[in-house]
């Protein structure tokens, strides 16, 4: 049997390639999720029923079904409607749209938890609705929602593993391929598990903590 160090020497570069694809998928999906979350979260709070209804429908559909179902639907069914996404794109779009729906609820909740007095003070200073939101409410809502966004981004990282099922060559995909040729399942899947864990624990979590500290300092809530 091959030693683990020999295994790593042989397959390390492929794990690295896969991890790079996973990282890129994660970043692109995260950007999409953040944009969708902001837009849908704000639409949910609109005084007008039309945007409110559109956002609610979007959120309920994406939170009410599985990411895997959405991914397959986007990749296999959407082309029948004339929208063909290349597998790499379909991957991060599905993940981003799914997590964006969860993020929208975080955005909405955080905005609603900014104290009423802040809205009233902004009205008393005669700010427009857009100014109130952008300059007064959102900066405060941001600090409130950062901790749950940290968890959401880890869910997002985990979600990207599903793109391997439509043959995007991410970390999960490489692990499966290596397992298929070597039958060293513990090594192949175990190494991938450790890499995912390291990305969550030593990249995403500290980055979010750091961002949180910086935001909090800017809010100067000692």
């Amino acid at each position: 049997m091959m030693s683990y160090s020999a295994f790593l020497t042989e397959y390390g570069p492929r794990f690295l390639d896969g991890a790079t694809v996973t990282a890129i998928q994660t970043v692109l999906a995260a950007i999409l999720a953040i944009v969708i979350a902001l837009v849908a979260g704000l639409m949910r709070l609109s005084a007008n029923v039309v945007p409110r209804w559109v956002a609610t429908t979007y959120i309920e559909i994406f939170r009410g079904t599985s990411l895997l179902v959405q991914l397959y639907w986007i990749f296999f069914v959407l082309p029948l409607f004339g929208i063909t996404l290349e597998k790499f794109t379909a991957g991060f779009v599905a993940v981003g749209m799914n997590l964006g729906a969860y993020g929208a609820e975080l955005v909405r909740g955080a905005i609603l938890s900014v104290p009423r007095g802040q809205w009233e003070a902004a009205i008393a200073l005669n700010m427009t609705g857009a100014q109130r939101m952008r300059r007064i409410i959102l900066p405060q809502a941001m600090v409130i929602m950062l901790p749950p966004w940290g968890n959401l981004l880890i869910e997002l990282l985990k979600g990207t593993a599903l793109v391997s099922l439509i043959a995007v060559a991410d970390l999960m995909f490489e692990a499966k391929q290596i397992n298929g040729t070597t039958f060293l399942s513990a090594q192949a899947f175990g190494t991938a598990l450790i890499i995912y864990y390291a990305m969550a624990r030593f990249v995403i979590t500290p980055a979010m903590r750091g961002l949180e500290r910086r935001m909090r300092r800017r809010l100067s809530r000692a």
Binding site: K158, G159, T160, A161, A192, Y196
Partner: peptide, 8 residues
């Protein structure tokens, strides 16, 4: 919690 269910 921080690793993908599908991989598990």
């Amino acid at each position: 919690r921080s690793t993908p269910l599908i991989l598990q």
